[in-house]
Design a protein around this nucleic acid. Structure first.
Lengths: 260, 260
DNA sequence: CGTGCGGTTGATGTAAATCAACCCATGTGG
DNA sequence: CCACATGGGTTGATTTACATCAACCGCACG
């Protein structure tokens, strides 16, 4: 049953790094917006956890759950989503490698949304007690985790603008831009040709559109040179092109040591 | 210049309570989602602040600002908004009496959105130092403030669902429902006939629609019995009607002592 | 007593939804 | 190894919810 080649969605996750450095990507994510002293980083990397491998589409958390652990996303993608009464679905957040998946459950009793993997994914399940201890003992770490929460909220506000006020083409380009920039946060090397392992239906749920319309919009975006597609594979081409179409500015990501 | 009768928008704010109990509504807001010991409440109520009266439409904060104080909203309404390149505007949060307006600036250096009053409003400007001291000395207060941030984020996710996946009528009804419930948090008495002091253009920017379409949607919502209008005055009638139209559930508000 | 902002209304336009096929790759079971 | 099922993806025809454009109205206030 545990297979390195998950069936449906192509596994874009890089192979899990060897040995004891697996939480490093999480630390790098925090460093993208907060500064942490070397010993703080060390303590974070030494957090106890149990690894967990999920297939594409597995649920991490369901609305109404009362979770008691804190999962970190080490590889693969995941997303939060909510359902309307008529069956409509809205993806309200996309999580990438390095992101903590459920900090809020440390403080809110019941989950207000669903959390599902987009691709096969590796999680690190951290016991809450360990995290709480760190938060108590290490103000800088507590602050970094809080900033991470605030940045996710800021991204949510930008999504509201995107969905509420931009047309399909700009919406799509904006999302792809954001994806490039966010992936760049934990991957210092230049990221030009990014493979986006997302289905057209998922893109639709993410952007408040229809799969059919996503299909057509992808085509015109390809015509404009922003992306290239071969079969089911969507890769980002010229980020500058997306920029122009998307009216993109990344201050809302609060990159760099933006901590006040 | 300081006048008790602001010019343009009708002042829905109740007259500021007398004497030293002005921060009480802020404490009640926190108590709506967190439990605080009597002495914690007392300390909060005793926070130092300078009162500030704003007219409708005044800016509290602009995108790019580096604020160094923490304003609380004691009376009146305010909202956060972001602008698109084509001039489109999206309101991304509505703040009601009792809400802290800018906790995030304690932790993020630059503001990622604009913050503007909707009506005339009374603020309490709390020096950051005082708040930081409380947060350090009182874990329960720190936790309550964090939960407040998390609940706002949860509301933002619900707005994404609302704007991304519901039609104009449901969207409008959902927003009005939320408003009733949130006002109820700090006002224990039953709230049936609520006056909503919001312009149709602002409603449009809030829901990702056009003023014209808001106008027509209001008319059909009135026809359905959800609201009543006399001239420029919009008041909420039957909340149950709105419920039915809006597909509303309030778990996302995390009411009650939901702290984990 | 104008002036202006916000509201109202109708006519028209259009971006995106819906409906309905059909295609193609992959996986599966006979 | 083929038959078939399945889940995306693609494409065209049609519909529709909402936007846009353009008046006009009416209260508030200066």
């Amino acid at each position: 049953m545990p297979s390195d080649m998950p069936p449906s969605t192509p596994d874009i996750a890089p192979p899990p790094p060897p040995g004891e450095e697996r939480l490093d990507i999480f630390v790098r994510k925090l460093l993208s917006h907060s500064s942490l002293a070397p010993d703080d980083r060390e303590v974070l990397r030494a957090l106890p956890y149990t690894p967990r491998r999920l297939d594409a589409g597995d649920y991490v958390l369901r609305e109404g759950d009362r979770p008691d652990v804190c999962p970190l996303l080490l590889s693969g993608f995941a997303y939060r989503h909510k359902l309307a009464a008529d069956g409509g679905r809205q993806i309200v957040a996309l999580k990438i490698p390095g992101d903590p998946l459920d900090l809020q459950s440390l403080f809110l009793r019941v989950a207000d949304h669903n959390l599902q993997t987009l691709t096969a994914a590796d999680l690190a399940i951290v016991p809450i007690a360990a995290l709480e201890e760190l938060v108590k003992a290490r103000p800088a770490i507590a602050r970094a985790l809080l900033v991470d929460i605030l940045v996710e909220a800021s991204i949510g506000r930008e999504w509201l603008l995107n969905i509420g006020r931009r047309n399909a083409l700009a919406r799509l380009a904006h999302f792809l831009c954001e994806l490039v920039y966010r992936l760049h946060l934990t991957a210092p090397q230049p990221l030009d040709m990014i493979d986006v392992p997302i289905t057209q239906e998922q893109l639709a749920d993410l952007l408040g559109l229809t799969p059919v319309h996503i299909n057509r919009t992808l085509k015109t975006l390809e015509g404009a040179g922003g992306i290239t597609r071969r079969g089911r594979r969507l890769t980002i081409g010229k980020v500058e092109v997306l920029h122009g179409i998307a009216d993109y500015s990344d201050i809302y990501l609060h990159r760099g040591l933006q901590t006040a």
